[in-house]
């Protein structure tokens, strides 16, 4: 929530604080997943596998509203806004640049909150299938959610037939973000 809080903090302390940001956010994705209709009907192993593969991508969608592409700032959960230049000191420059680019593309689609939530559900169940036991069940769940998302978007914007395909094109973007950046290192202090 608070990656930077004054010049008296060492870069190590800032890095620890930034790493800690992800813990509550990941837990919220797990709770979000449990609320997706049909998700808890999958086997526990498949639920865990989808969450392990897809949580980073869901977080990228969730966090993109915190990125202001116009003035190149990021707003953290404590409500404070930091310029990209300050955050580069954390060493996450390439991830932040990719996030700005992604948030610009997704932001331009102008999704309502419920559309965004349904899109996040699609992102999660569209994650990598390695290790999934019941492929058919996961595919059925994915198809149902994609149908619901298409229906919601088309009902609300019957004159815009390009929005839904453009939204689906963000899925490969998220996979690329995941492949390039999920191996970034975090540091947690052991007391």
């Amino acid at each position: 929530a608070c990656p930077v809080s004054g010049a008296d903090r060492s870069s190590q302390e800032i890095w620890e604080s930034f790493s800690q940001c992800f813990t509550p956010a990941v837990k919220e994705v797990v709770e979000f997943a449990k609320g997706i209709p049909g998700f808890q009907e999958l086997s526990q192993q498949d639920q865990v596998m989808l969450l392990k593969s897809g949580t980073f991508q869901v977080l990228m969608v969730r966090f993109c509203t915190l990125f202001n592409a116009e003035d190149r700032t990021v707003t953290f959960l404590n409500g404070k806004t930091y310029p990209l230049s300050t955050l580069r000191a954390l060493g996450m420059g390439s991830l932040l640049d990719a996030m700005f680019e992604f948030s610009e593309k997704l932001g331009s689609l102008g999704l309502e909150p419920d559309e965004m939530a349904l899109f996040m559900a699609v992102v999660l169940v569209s994650a990598d299938r390695s290790g999934i036991l019941d492929m058919w069940a996961v595919e059925q769940l994915q198809e149902g959610l994609i149908r619901a998302l298409r229906s919601l978007i088309n009902r609300r914007r019957p004159d815009d037939t390009t929005l839904f395909p453009k939204l689906l094109l963000r899925l490969p973007d998220l996979r690329t973000l995941n492949n390039f950046h999920s191996e970034k290192l975090l540091a947690f202090r052991i007391d």
Partner: peptide, 25 residues
């Protein structure tokens, strides 16, 4: 002198998820 556990974001996510499911079993 501080000791740190260093892990990738992917491993950290995995760890939280495994913990959560184990806790709720």
């Amino acid at each position: 002198h501080k000791t740190h556990r260093v892990m990738t974001l992917a491993d950290h996510i995995s760890h939280i998820i495994t913990q959560d499911f184990a806790r709720n079993q």
